[in-house]
Design a protein around this nucleic acid. Structure first.
Lengths: 252, 252
DNA sequence: GCAAAAGTGTTAACTGTACACCCATGA
DNA sequence: TCATGGGTGTACAGTTAACACTTTTGC
């Protein structure tokens, strides 16, 4: 895909436009997000936690830029990303550490940057995180624990989370956050975690089953200290259909 | 507001970032949008219809840039704009006329531009459109009639329209599209026009009245060739409250 | 046997939807 | 008197929301 653009004159990095990626993952306990640490030198005193993001090239489109940057910094490939919006307060660089870091890495560290944020949902256990480029490390962090991020990344994270919550009410979610087989209890936990509220078990099951996107498997849980649950999986066809048409009655 | 930023060093126009504004208006018949015409010279053969939009300054934030650009091109002041998203295909300049026009007006006509789109709703009758800067004219055009626009503005218009439709289901709409006094019939017509579907009169009335955002006025229509309708107005306090909290049960 | 989550139905309140007639006015 | 949109109520179907007990397993 990138190749097509490489035939046109390559103008290199655009100093004014970046992309940032908010990658959510669910571990059956809490909602997590991929962060990187970067800084000048190795001293932890200059380290900053940030969302994976970087400047785009003049000859690539925004969606592709987000994919590329995500892969370069975290090793995550072929991730479907959805745009959250543009963030571009001219004084989004408020922190001295961010300023220093920019000077150490950018050709035009003072340039005004507008960033386009993207988000995605991934099954954590399938992800191989691999820090490279200026990312000193990559890791999953609990969204609830994140109190500070570089630039305006905290705002971006909050807006992305709102967008994710909203998505739950309008489209099926889970293919991307859960393993192939899962239990209804785990699915409900996912909804409860993202929406940050308790849901009645019977009502949840009735409602989710009516969507008709789940296939009951013969297999049951093993080794759990309670009645083992049947595993279910998503019915891909129905799931995709519903993703496209959407619905608007899935509030809890 | 702008003043605060003018104290910082003014870096001038950023060649890579623009804003575009999609201003919707309703005339009791159809949905309209503000367009400008611009081109090289006065010959109509080089004219292009476009959304009002231009490059931003390095020292202004995106929202303010959108407000400023809108005012400069159309004379519309103090318009509350909501972000739609970023559009930035590197080959969004596909048309020769657009290319020529860029060369005639931009210092760096070949620069890659990412545009941030904004939309708003305005009562048409209160708007004084005044073309200035590079806008040769400004006018309302029926959304349904628009088949071609400069750059990727048609895509931006479509996305904004989707966003507007979506807004109807989640927040009260109308303060900005209707005059102060209006009839329930007119309000219904507005919903029908935007959603592009017929709505049952009794159901519509019941539902909108339950929102409790309307105040019945004593005044009635005059000069209409049918039973005159009572005028209503919005209850500003309730309207604002609902705008903030939102709802999700206003589908038709 | 105890702790922990699975699994399962009913009821009452509310919401959505479909539907038809008379009214007040201007022309 | 006709055409036009204003204004009104009901019944049925479907959806939401609240609620409690038995089952199966590991320890």
């Amino acid at each position: 895909m990138n190749r097509a653009y490489n035939h046109t004159k390559n103008k290199g990095l655009n100093p004014n436009i970046s992309v940032d990626c908010v990658i959510f993952g669910f571990d059956f306990e809490k909602l997590n997000v991929v962060t990187i640490r970067r800084g000048t030198g190795n001293g932890s005193e200059l380290m900053r936690t940030a969302l994976p993001g970087d400047l785009i090239y003049d000859n690539e489109n925004l969606d592709m830029a987000a994919e590329r940057v995500l892969e370069e910094l975290t090793g995550l490939k072929d991730v479907y990303l959805e745009q959250v919006g543009a963030f571009g307060d001219p004084n989004r660089v408020r922190n001295k550490k961010d300023e220093k870091w920019l000077k150490s890495i950018r050709e035009q560290p003072e340039a005004r940057v507008v960033t386009i944020a993207y988000y995605s949902l991934l099954p954590m256990e399938k992800c191989q995180l691999l820090a490279s480029s200026f990312a000193k490390s990559v890791q999953w962090e609990a969204v609830a624990d994140i109190k500070d991020l570089a630039f305006d990344h905290l705002e971006i994270l909050k807006t992305s989370l709102d967008k994710l919550k909203n998505k739950l009410a309008h489209q099926p979610v889970g293919v991307n956050l859960l393993p192939e087989k899962f239990t209804l209890g785990q699915l409900q936990k996912m909804y409860e975690t993202i929406l940050d509220k308790k849901i009645d078990k019977r009502n949840f099951r009735r409602k989710i089953q009516k969507l008709d996107i789940l296939t009951l498997l013969d297999e049951k849980q093993t080794g759990v200290p309670h009645k083992p649950s049947h595993y279910v999986k998503f019915n891909d066809k129905k799931y995709r259909e519903l993703s496209e048409t959407g619905f608007d009655n899935f509030g809890f």
